[in-house]
Design a protein around this nucleic acid. Structure first.
Lengths: 262, 262
DNA sequence: CTCCGCTACTCGTCTAGACGCCCAAAGGAG
DNA sequence: CTCCTTTGGGCGTCTAGACGAGTAGCGGAG
């Protein structure tokens, strides 16, 4: 319970209607915003804040939990509370599935990662067959059964997204698509080899807080939402040949799209 | 502190490593997921949960705050804790700025809302001139000054997004674009009348937790992220003529994009 | 010098209680 | 019957303390 280094933090306004823990959170937020605590820097410990403000520890913890919920800070057991660093973001361009990106040896994720000088990894790969959910079924034109491909992507050791692909079984069964590693260019290259020349993709983007299993899979800090991206691929005959349901750590991505004005 | 209506909630596992408040949160989450508490339904009161589980009130509140952070429930002072209803989502199609949508009397937002049978409103309109930020300046080709248009959109009385547009002053000054109401078709229609025929848009999509002012402006419940959409409009000469920075309530939107496979 | 254990500090969890304000319903005054 | 007050239940805030567990550094044993 040492004294605070300096006058970075002010005093409480006893006459204010604003709850004490909110005032403390406000002051910390402002100090972080002003750069008094840099990214990754350690905030004063709970004891120090208790001493500085003359409040009980639960009040301080309440203030810190507000900032945690905003995604501004994260705590590490036994070490302290730190300003959450902004991780490098991966920019997903809308032409990332263009054919010329595919005519190479590797998957889109790997190519992009290596171009950015990052190390990429894919794990937790599962391939199975099942009956589609109502939503997937509707998007794929009501196939009886679908091939399901599930995998998780890591960038420099950090999990950043996981994705589940669904393909009608009559298209995918007995092809390399049903293999754990579908080969160079990924399943879109295989689909084209199988005569399903791709014409367009539809993508739906949502954002929400992660479920506990999602937070665990992506090792998400509190206060980090996920982006859910559902992509449907259509071939030149207008048939939906794949649905890909992706959950991404929102702090790791920015999605870029290009729209014609028509 | 009456008894709980039935066996919807189980008992605690004293041998588990999992913290008591997490176990309580788990049980409530599961009960909600199973539909035992419908959307909008009231959860057992804190007192009831204290009585049911035999723990202190802070532990129960801790459990409820977990669910609140996940966006599953929200509390109302003096009334109770309720399962957060999923509001109707507005689907933004990628052709929403197509010219044929614009050749009407109203703004895109209004047209869409009325088509869906909703009541739309625009408020908090501000128009001013200022020096652009570094980011806006880079996107717009380093104009000295920009026209700034700021407004908030409401759907059936609920604020769902607010947006700030930036236009180079040499384009917008002295035109209807600088007026509070730019007229039918919005500023894109005015830009085209001024000879800036629009060719394409670039959109960048991010998601994060709201800042406190954003949460206030959009009246966001805890646990609801925002989608930030930055759109740049280019004319046929390749010049960036507008940047629009939008913050949307993530629970009110799904963004739809169509990508050609090329 | 190296390794290990102690210790101080950190956050995590939980208790038991207090007071305040908000809300809704019951009940009395008019 | 209407209106207002009362009252109980609900969440919001805060206190003071306890114990547990992870971390890191110091210092002594070997």
């Amino acid at each position: 319970m040492t004294a605070l280094p300096s006058g970075l933090l002010g005093v409480l306004d006893a006459t204010s209607d604003r709850a004490v823990f909110r005032q403390i959170a406000d002051q910390l937020r402002e100090a972080i915003g002003k750069g008094h605590f840099a990214e990754g820097a350690k905030l004063p410990s709970e004891s120090e804040l208790v001493g500085h403000y003359g409040v009980s520890r639960m009040t301080v913890r309440n203030a810190l939990s507000v900032l945690q919920g905003e995604g501004l800070v994260h705590s590490e057991h036994g070490k302290g509370v730190f300003v959450r660093p902004r991780p490098p973001v991966r920019r997903l361009a809308s032409d990332r599935f263009a054919r010329h990106h595919r005519d190479q040896g590797k998957s889109a994720f790997t190519v992009e990662a290596e171009a950015a000088g990052s190390h990429s990894q894919v794990d937790n790969l599962q391939v199975r067959e099942e009956r589609p959910s109502a939503d997937v079924s509707a998007r794929l034109g009501s196939p009886l059964r679908v091939l399901v491909r599930h995998r998780r992507y890591l960038l420099d050791g950090r999990p950043v997204e996981f994705a589940t692909s669904y393909l009608p079984l009559d298209i995918a069964k007995g092809t390399p698509i049903a293999a754990p590693n579908p080969g160079p260019g990924g399943i879109y290259a295989r689909l084209e080899e199988l005569g399903h020349r791709l014409e367009r993709f539809e993508e739906e983007v949502r954002a929400r807080m992660p479920t506990p299993p999602e937070a665990k899979t992506l090792r998400l800090a509190p206060g980090v939402p996920v982006i859910r991206l559902v992509r449907t691929a259509y071939d030149t005959k207008g048939r939906a040949v794949e649905v890909c349901d992706t959950v991404m750590a929102a702090d790791a991505y920015v999605l870029a799209y290009e729209l014609p004005a028509q």
